[in-house]
Nucleic acid binder design. Structure first.
Ligand SMILES: [Mn+2]
Ligand SMILES: [Mn+2]
Ligand SMILES: [Zn+2]
Ligand SMILES: [Zn+2]
Lengths: 138, 138
DNA sequence: TCCTATATTGGACATTGTCCAAGTCAAGAA
DNA sequence: TTCTTGACTTGGACAATGTCCAATATAGGA
């Protein structure tokens, strides 16, 4: 994901060791880590990295639109580097596994005009809940 | 909402003063309070009510299906007594206002079979984000 | 190499929620 | 009505997640 680092440099970011390892952790396209998980993984490569830097960097990446914040439960937010492909999420209530899912239609289409109350609707988050094959078997 | 209290008694609940005031706070059909808001409102009528009782009671009401837990941001969960009518939520990014919205179609219909990965999907939460008329004007 | 605006750090603090031992009380029994 | 008892409530400790800040370090241009 040096593409990401390039884009960040182009936006005037200083390329610090901390930001590099965080970008590496998020390099997989289908990860949905919490800030704490990002911190633990980053610390594997750069032991002295602080929690504050992880929170700072994740917040900046979200503000730049390079990473998407995902809330699947009332717990910690998750950070999703897959912003290229429009998608929603499917969550296992048993083990917490998260899958990206691509919808066959726009969820905005099922929100009637008279149910918008004059709002300018700009975004929609859809989260499906169920049991994954492993958890259904158990 | 003495209907609720009746149902709870039928299920073997002791009708304590604490549970009564919490039920009263949730009596409006279109409220979406956080636990802290429920606590503050309940304390208006029963000053000595504890946070623990509010959390306990809300958790029990959710377990019984009398109240629905709603997560619209990464912050505090909200408690929704409107379980009779299937609905989703529209949230203002400016002021946090929450409106109930009734969809014209089932969001499950736009999740293709091949995007289910063998999950048994049982639930779906849809949250629309936008700006309410007041916040759009400002 | 040096300078300095920007970034990082540790730790204090805030918010939201859970847990527990001790005390209290709702409601059925007598 | 009073008694009894198991369910309920309470305060406060603790946990998880996140924010903020003053002091320190450093990336990258001069
Ligand atoms: Mn995703
Ligand atoms: Mn609602
Ligand atoms: Zn599972
Ligand atoms: Zn608004």
């Amino acid at each position: 994901m040096s593409d990401l680092l390039e884009r960040l440099r182009a936006r005037g970011w200083r390329l610090t060791a901390q930001r590099r390892v965080i970008a590496e952790v998020l390099a997989g396209e289908h990860v949905h880590y919490t800030a704490d998980e990002v911190h633990a993984l980053a610390a594997g490569r750069l032991p002295e990295i602080s929690r504050a830097s992880v929170y700072n960097t994740l917040g900046e990446l979200v503000a730049l639109g390079e990473v998407r914040e995902v809330t699947t439960d009332g717990r910690a937010k998750r950070y999703d580097p897959n912003v290229a492909e429009s998608h929603q999420h499917l969550v296992c209530s048993g083990c917490g596994a998260i899958r990206d899912v691509r919808l066959s239609g726009d969820p905005l289409a099922v929100l009637p005009e008279e149910e918008r109350y004059g709002f300018t609707v700009s975004e929609v988050a859809v989260t499906y809940y169920g049991r994954c094959p492993d958890c259904a078997a158990a």
